[in-house]
Design a protein around this nucleic acid. Structure first.
Length: 112
DNA sequence: AAAGTGACTATCA
DNA sequence: ATGATAGCCACTT
């Protein structure tokens, strides 16, 4: 990836990959950490392309409400919520119940 | 180069 | 409280 025009995606993948086990974050938080708080959609877009990378745990990335908005975008039959539940996250009806307990903000945890 | 799309978020009704 | 609309930034065509 010597090209810079994919740097934004690379940053997203890097942050997502750094999400601790059993933790989740939101698109806006990642976008904000990258310097563009309004780029939540772009983060989601990066996730859409993340399927080419198996090192990107997109199942740990949810929307602001803790809802697994993109669970249907997973190419596999392995549901996002089972994966999250296996990590210790309580997910019901595609929504994280203990979001506040598992929420992980890169701007607070990484930007030190 | 311009227009369209999208796994989001915030605000208004 | 929910539902619809607008704003946002980067990618695709």
């Amino acid at each position: 990836m010597a090209k810079d025009h994919t740097n934004f995606f690379n940053n997203v993948y890097e942050v997502v990959r750094l999400i601790p086990h059993g933790r989740v974050t939101s698109y806006g938080a990642i976008g904000h950490y990258l310097g563009s708080k309004g780029s939540a959609r772009v983060v989601g877009w990066a996730m859409n392309a993340s399927h080419i990378m198996d090192d990107v745990p997109a199942h740990r990335v949810v929307n602001r409400a803790g809802v697994l908005t993109g669970k249907h975008h997973f190419d596999t039959v392995n549901p996002m919520q089972e994966r999250l539940e296996a990590e210790g996250v309580i997910v019901v009806n595609d929504k994280i119940q203990n979001l506040k307990e598992v929420y992980w903000d890169p701007t607070e945890e990484l930007a030190l």
